[in-house]
Simulated scan of single mutants.
Amino acid sequence: MVVRHKSFDHLGGFYHYRVHDVKTKELCANGYSSLKNYLNAMFSNCPNEFFDKGPRSSALKFKISNLDIKKTKNHEVCKLAENGLNENFERYKTNHSRVQVFMLENDDKTVAMEVPLWLFPNEFKYFNELFKSNWPLTGHIDVLRVEDDKIWVWDYKPNAYLEKFATTQVYFYALMLSRRIGVDLRDFRCGYFDENHAFMFKPVENIKIEKELTDLFGFVKNKFI
Rank of each mutant, 00 (worst) to 15 (best):
M1F: 12
M1Y: 04
M1N: 13
M1R: 00
R4M: 13
L11G: 12
G12W: 02
G13M: 10
F14D: 12
F14N: 15
H20W: 03
K25V: 04
K25T: 10
E26R: 15
C28R: 05
A29H: 05
N30F: 09
G31N: 09
G31P: 09
S33I: 06
N37E: 15
Y38R: 06
L39G: 08
N40D: 10
A41R: 11
M42V: 09
M42Y: 00
M42S: 07
C46D: 05
P47Y: 00
N48M: 06
N48Q: 06
E49R: 04
E49C: 03
F50D: 11
F50Q: 00
D52G: 11
G54Q: 06
P55W: 02
S58L: 02
A59F: 09
F62K: 05
K63S: 13
I64G: 05
I64Y: 01
N66F: 01
L67K: 07
L67Y: 01
I69Y: 01
I69D: 02
K73R: 15
E76Y: 13
E76C: 04
K79A: 07
K79H: 11
L80K: 01
L80R: 06
A81H: 04
E82Q: 12
E82M: 02
N86G: 01
E87G: 02
E87A: 11
E87V: 10
F89C: 01
E90C: 03
E90G: 12
R91F: 04
Y92Q: 08
Y92F: 15
Y92T: 08
T94P: 13
N95W: 08
H96V: 03
H96T: 07
H96F: 09
V99S: 10
V101G: 00
F102D: 07
M103G: 14
M103I: 01
L104E: 02
D108V: 12
K109C: 13
T110S: 14
A112E: 02
L117K: 10
E123M: 07
F124N: 09
Y126C: 05
Y126A: 07
F131H: 08
F131L: 15
S133F: 08
W135K: 15
P136F: 03
P136M: 04
P136S: 07
L137G: 12
T138P: 08
T138W: 04
T138S: 15
I141L: 10
I141M: 08
V143E: 04
L144R: 08
R145A: 11
E147C: 08
E147T: 06
K150G: 02
D155H: 09
A160D: 07
K164S: 13
A166S: 15
Q169R: 06
Q169T: 09
V170T: 14
V170K: 01
Y171C: 04
F172Q: 03
F172A: 04
F172Y: 13
Y173T: 13
Y173G: 14
M176V: 03
S178T: 08
I181F: 03
I181E: 02
R186Y: 09
C190R: 07
C190H: 05
C190G: 12
C190W: 07
G191T: 04
G191R: 03
Y192E: 05
E195R: 12
A198C: 15
A198V: 11
A198Y: 05
F199D: 08
F199H: 11
F199N: 08
M200L: 14
K202C: 10
V204Q: 13
E205L: 11
I207H: 00
I207T: 12
K208P: 01
K208Y: 00
I209Q: 00
L213D: 03
L213C: 06
T214M: 10
D215R: 02
G218C: 09
G218N: 09
K221I: 09
